[in-house]
Simulated scan of single mutants.
Amino acid sequence: MKQRTLLKTITALGFCAAIGVAQAGAIDALKKFNSDTDGISGNFSQTVKSKKKTQTTNGAFQIQRPGLFKWEYTRPYKQTIVGDGKTIWLYDVDLAQVTKSSQDQTIGDSPAAILSNKTALDSSYSLKEDGSSGGIDYVLASPKKNNAGYQYIRIGFKGDALAAMQLKDSFGNETTISFSNLNMKPNLSRNTFKFTPPKGVDVLSN
Rank of each mutant, 00 (worst) to 15 (best):
L121W: 04
L95E: 06
Q79N: 06
L95A: 13
G134D: 01
I81A: 13
D130S: 11
K118D: 07
Q64A: 12
P111Q: 14
K53M: 09
T106E: 15
S126F: 00
L95N: 09
I81T: 07
T56F: 06
S116I: 14
I114R: 03
Q62G: 02
K53S: 07
I81F: 00
L95C: 00
T99V: 15
D84S: 07
W89N: 06
W71Y: 12
T80D: 06
K128N: 06
T80Y: 04
T57V: 13
W71N: 09
D84G: 14
D122T: 12
Q62K: 15
I88G: 14
S102E: 13
F61P: 10
A96H: 12
K53R: 12
T99Y: 13
P76A: 01
K53F: 07
G131E: 03
D130E: 04
Y91L: 03
Y73S: 04
D94V: 08
I88N: 10
Q103P: 02
F69E: 05
G85H: 11
F61C: 04
K128A: 08
K128T: 13
D122M: 06
L127Q: 08
Q103N: 03
T106H: 02
K78A: 07
E129R: 01
Q55M: 12
Y77I: 13
K78Q: 08
D109P: 01
T74F: 01
L121C: 07
Q97L: 13
K52F: 08
A113F: 01
R75M: 08
D122F: 02
I63E: 08
N58F: 10
K70T: 02
Q105N: 12
S123W: 00
I88Q: 12
S124F: 11
E72A: 08
K128R: 14
P66W: 07
Q79V: 03
D92I: 02
G131P: 01
N117L: 04
T56M: 11
G67R: 11
Q105E: 15
S132C: 00
N117H: 06
G131W: 01
A60W: 00
I107K: 03
